[in-house]
Design a binder for these strands. Sequence first.
DNA 1: GCAAAAGTGTTGGAAATACACCCATGT
DNA 2: ACATGGGTGTATTTCCAACACTTTTGC
Lengths: 242, 242
Amino acid sequence: MKDSQLHNVKSLKAVQSEVQIYNKVALSVDCVIFGFEENKLKVLLIRSDMKKFQSRWSLLGDLLNPNEDLDDAAYRILNQRTGMDDLYLEQVNTFGKVSRHPGGRVVTVAYYSLINVLNHKLQILDNEIHWHDVNAVTDLAFDHQDIFETCLKRLQKRVQEHPLGFNLLPNKFSLRELQNLYEAILGIKLDRRNFRKKFFAMDFLVDMEEIETNVPHRPGRLYQFDYEKYEKNKKKWSGIDF
Amino acid sequence: MKDSQLHNVKSLKAVQSEVQIYNKVALSVDCVIFGFEENKLKVLLIRSDMKKFQSRWSLLGDLLNPNEDLDDAAYRILNQRTGMDDLYLEQVNTFGKVSRHPGGRVVTVAYYSLINVLNHKLQILDNEIHWHDVNAVTDLAFDHQDIFETCLKRLQKRVQEHPLGFNLLPNKFSLRELQNLYEAILGIKLDRRNFRKKFFAMDFLVDMEEIETNVPHRPGRLYQFDYEKYEKNKKKWSGIDF
DNA sequence: GCAAAAGTGTTGGAAATACACCCATGT
DNA sequence: ACATGGGTGTATTTCCAACACTTTTGC
């Protein structure tokens, strides 16, 4: 008697045909795309094309292709819809309630992403895609409201643990812009002096030795985020903690 | 011309048949089941039945049923394999690399769970299911090593944000047991005096007015975790922070 | 009485908060 | 000159880490 029989071990072929007859479900990827504009945190939404959800908004999503990694699918959706290619992406959660999609069983993997609205004007100007103030997002189609809120909470948490915010800002930014961003994401007011101290203490802002222009007041200095320095000192980093 | 034509709105029927022809993939759920025994953090593993992974260990998992919610599937796996029904479950991440399963495309949703090993002896005594010290887990089948490590890291983080640890302990426990648990999960030594202070300050341990028995030294008091009190004061709670 | 862990308080230092004034620019 | 936000320093408080001795039980 062979070992493989003794232990009921399955050959590759057996496993392959097993997988063939597995139950399968449609798998989609939905993206909560955040941007920052006019000192507000925004999210990119598209109008649902389903009668059931007439004129309600929904997240941007698409089906997973048969030979596509999950992360690649999320990236593809973002790239197709926005034309942007430098972005921050993070998987958040998978939503699989049986009846979440009226058309049948569709499980969806949710990502959020951060993009720099200023550097890249939306290249696909579908007039049914719009930026929405996150505070005004209600009643999305499907279970997208739930997905959206889960992703927003995740972002709020992450941004206090890692310096992600920079992905939403132009390359060079003033400390006020940075503070406005944090206040918009967290929905709270922060003390300006302590905010500055905190970020300077982290020591990964590079002074560009430039100043703002066209502001109706004393111009602020511009800074860049030093990704390299941050990567090197990552271990020491233990969060922002407002 | 009807509204639905104007805006190219899809009827329910149209959407249903659309979903029918969607690309579909096999979707599984894998569980990283943690237990606590002999002052070590353990994980429940089963021997792979695939020739390719001969005698390597793998996580407990199964396919998602067609009419089953994701969380329900995770619960079912745990219940089937361990016979336990009071457990903590949390979805962690979805792994979807195209070639992660040798049998074909299988996307898997990973959960970790915490169970109380003492209260419930494993009811399914399959001799190929065993508890393993988390520090000795290497070279799991499939991408399970990756999944396992992701889940362990998540647990380490969560346990510092929320009082989950109690799910791994008997109903009544001494502070030493609690500390041993935290030390095992985090892999660090903690100061006993400060540990006690911290937990008493949180104020959701209930003194059972009982003491340990059969210990070869001064017996410690036994406590219970007060879930209700914790739920009520959740907002105030901001983490353990060792 | 000895081994082994239970139980308890204090102190110093670091980090976060709160807070007020002068400065540079555009109008 | 004034309105607006830029830029900075200090005092107070709060929280955490470090640390040592007495007590209770089993053997």
